[in-house]
């Protein structure tokens, strides 16, 4: 465990908590893509099935359980508790365009053709594109609440830190997982445009709004 990996996990956790708190405190999930949240919950559920098969560390298991519970809680808040505030009209990204190709790819390109491994690969590929419905929603409405942009920032930061973590592990441990690295790169690139807006607008105290 290096500092980049730990910082990555922490910012991932911060992102998840920010989103949960935002929805809970404002009693509203306006501007949040329920579809992205369902995708993230599916990512965690399919990836962390190994909770039942192997034990890596207390840290590893507890983080997995926290991620899964928080993501399912978020889906529950969006689709049940605060459903009335959910902006379904603007959450129109066609998720089948992500899930079907990602599903197909995970059957074709994986480390081992076994159910657990295919599900793990599926979750890695799916995570890399799971934010697209959320970004699509923001591009459609042309704006995002500042707290939502903080959520996206920490989610992107987590991916960026994981990339540094992989460079570190490659040099110091000879660790190299091409599937995770390529998917992680794709995922980080998707945040670049957003990062630019975050730095140029949100950090200067302006609301994130896109030119019409």
């Amino acid at each position: 465990m290096n500092i980049f990996r730990l910082a990555g996990d922490v910012s991932h956790l911060v992102a998840i908590i920010i989103l949960l708190l935002k929805i809970w405190k404002t009693r509203s999930c306006a501007g949040i893509s329920g579809k992205s949240q369902i995708l993230f919950a599916s990512v965690f559920v399919t990836r962390y099935l190994d909770l039942f098969t192997i034990f890596i560390s207390l840290y590893n298991s507890s983080m997995k359980i926290i991620y899964i519970s928080c993501s399912i809680a978020t889906v529950y808040l969006v689709y049940f508790k605060f459903k009335a505030t959910y902006d379904g009209n603007h959450d129109t990204f066609r998720v089948e365009f992500l899930v079907v190709p990602v599903g197909g790819l995970s059957f074709l390109v994986n480390h081992d053709f076994s159910p657990m491994e295919i599900l793990w690969t599926f979750s890695i590929y799916l995570e890399s594109v799971a934010i697209l419905p959320q970004l699509f929603m923001i591009s459609k409405t042309g704006e995002a609440e500042t707290i939502t942009t903080h959520y996206l920032f920490f989610l992107g930061l987590y991916r960026g830190l994981y990339l540094i973590n992989w460079i570190w592990r490659y040099y110091f441990e000879g660790f190299f997982d091409l599937i995770a690295i390529v998917a992680g790169l794709v995922q980080t690139v998707l945040y670049c445009d957003f990062f630019y807006l975050y730095v140029t607008k949100v950090l200067k105290g302006k609301k994130l709004s896109l030119p019409a």
Binding site: R5, D50, Y162, D177
Partner: peptide
Amino acid sequence: QLIVKQKDEL
């Protein structure tokens, strides 16, 4: 020899 996979990451 590079280790291909080692699922200790989250």
